[in-house]
Deep mutational scan, measured.
Amino acid sequence: MATDAALRRLLRLHRTEIAVAVDSAFPLLHALADHDVVPEDKFQETLHLKEKEGCPQAFHALLSWLLTQDSTAILDFWRVLFKDYNLERYGRLQPILDSFPKDVDLSQPRKGRKPPAVPKALVPPPRLPTKRKASEEARAAAPAALTPRGTASPGSQLKAKPPKKPESSAEQQRLPLGNGIQTMSASVQRAVAMSSGDVPGARGAVEGILIQQVFESGGSKKCIQVGGEFYTPSKFEDSGSGKNKARSSSGPKPLVRAKGAQGAAPGGGEARLGQQGSVPAPLALPSDPQLHQKNEDECAVCRDGGELICCDGCPRAFHLACLSPPLREIPSGTWRCSSCLQATVQEVQPRAEEPRPQEPPVETPLPPGLRSAGEEVRGPPGEPLAGMDTTLVYKHLPAPPSAAPLPGLDSSALHPLLCVGPEGQQNLAPGARCGVCGDGTDVLRCTHCAAAFHWRCHFPAGTSRPGTGLRCRSCSGDVTPAPVEGVLAPSPARLAPGPAKDDTASHEPALH
Rank of each mutant, 00 (worst) to 15 (best):
T3G: 01
L7F: 00
L7P: 02
L7W: 02
R8Q: 00
R9A: 11
L11S: 02
L11N: 01
R15P: 00
T16D: 01
T16A: 00
T16N: 05
E17Q: 00
E17M: 08
A19Y: 00
V20T: 02
V22E: 00
S24V: 05
A25R: 03
L28A: 01
H30Q: 00
A33C: 08
D34R: 00
H35R: 01
V37E: 00
V37S: 00
V38Q: 01
V38P: 01
P39T: 13
P39Q: 03
K42F: 01
Q44I: 09
Q44A: 06
T46C: 08
H48N: 06
H48S: 00
H48P: 00
G54R: 00
G54Q: 00
C55Q: 00
P56N: 02
P56R: 03
F59I: 10
F59W: 03
L63Y: 00
W65R: 00
W65A: 00
L66N: 00
L67A: 02
D70F: 01
D76T: 02
F77V: 02
L81C: 07
K83F: 02
N86F: 00
L87H: 00
Q94S: 03
S99P: 15
S99W: 00
S99Y: 00
F100C: 04
F100E: 01
F100A: 03
K102Y: 14
K102E: 13
D103G: 14
P109N: 00
K111C: 14
K111V: 14
G112D: 12
K114F: 07
P115A: 07
A117M: 08
A117W: 14
V123H: 13
P124V: 15
P124T: 06
P125S: 10
P126N: 02
K133Q: 01
E137T: 02
A138H: 03
A141H: 12
A142D: 11
A142G: 13
P143D: 10
P143A: 12
L146I: 08
G150I: 11
A152G: 07
S156E: 04
P163Q: 11
K164R: 15
K164Q: 08
K165T: 00
E167P: 04
E167T: 06
S168G: 07
S169V: 14
A170S: 07
A170L: 03
Q172G: 05
Q172S: 06
Q172I: 15
Q173T: 14
L175D: 10
P176C: 15
L177H: 10
L177Y: 15
L177F: 15
G180D: 04
I181E: 02
M184N: 02
A186E: 06
S187K: 08
A191D: 09
A191Q: 04
M194E: 05
S195E: 08
S196K: 07
S196W: 04
G197W: 03
D198W: 00
V199E: 08
P200D: 05
P200Q: 12
A202D: 06
R203N: 02
G204E: 08
V206I: 13
E207C: 05
G208L: 03
L210I: 09
V214I: 06
V214R: 06
S217H: 11
G218S: 07
C223H: 07
V226S: 04
V226C: 03
F230A: 05
F230M: 07
T232L: 11
S234W: 07
D238H: 14
S239E: 07
K245A: 14
K245Q: 08
K245W: 09
S249E: 01
S250C: 13
G251H: 10
G251T: 11
K253F: 07
V256P: 08
R257W: 06
K259E: 06
G260C: 10
Q262E: 14
A265V: 11
A265H: 07
G269L: 14
A271I: 11
R272Q: 09
L273M: 13
